[in-house]
């Protein structure tokens, strides 16, 4: 199921990540900022794309601002943003 709404999740606090997502038309467009870009930029991008794929999101504009979050935290924030964007959040 595709995204319906623009949505966000997470915070800008240390060890967290802030994720914004909106419906797109041309695949996944990912904009990533991270305090550990050099050390983990590629790993983060892979994790984000992996979560989107698991949730069957094929077209979306995604912005991730990472404040040194562990991968399980980033994955959680992306998932929550997607669920909110699909209107599935409880």
């Amino acid at each position: 199921m595709e995204m319906k709404l623009r949505a966000s999740a997470g915070t800008m606090e240390s060890s967290d990540a802030y994720v914004e997502i909106e419906p797109g038309t041309d695949g996944i467009k990912l904009q990533l900022e991270s305090v550990v870009m050099g050390q983990f930029g590629e790993a983060i991008e892979k994790a984000v794309r992996n979560v989107l794929q698991e949730l069957s999101v094929e077209n979306a504009n995604v912005r991730v601002v990472d404040r040194g979050a562990l991968e399980c935290v980033i994955r959680a924030r992306v998932e929550t943003a997607v669920l909110r964007g699909k209107g599935d959040a409880q």
């Binding site: 550990v36 050099g38 050390q39 983990f40 930029g41 590629e42 790993a43 562990l70 991968e71």
Partner: peptide, 10 residues
């Protein structure tokens, strides 16, 4: 194991 292995910086 918790953080993942960081890539080396240039």
């Amino acid at each position: 194991r918790i953080t993942g292995k960081p890539a080396k910086l240039p």
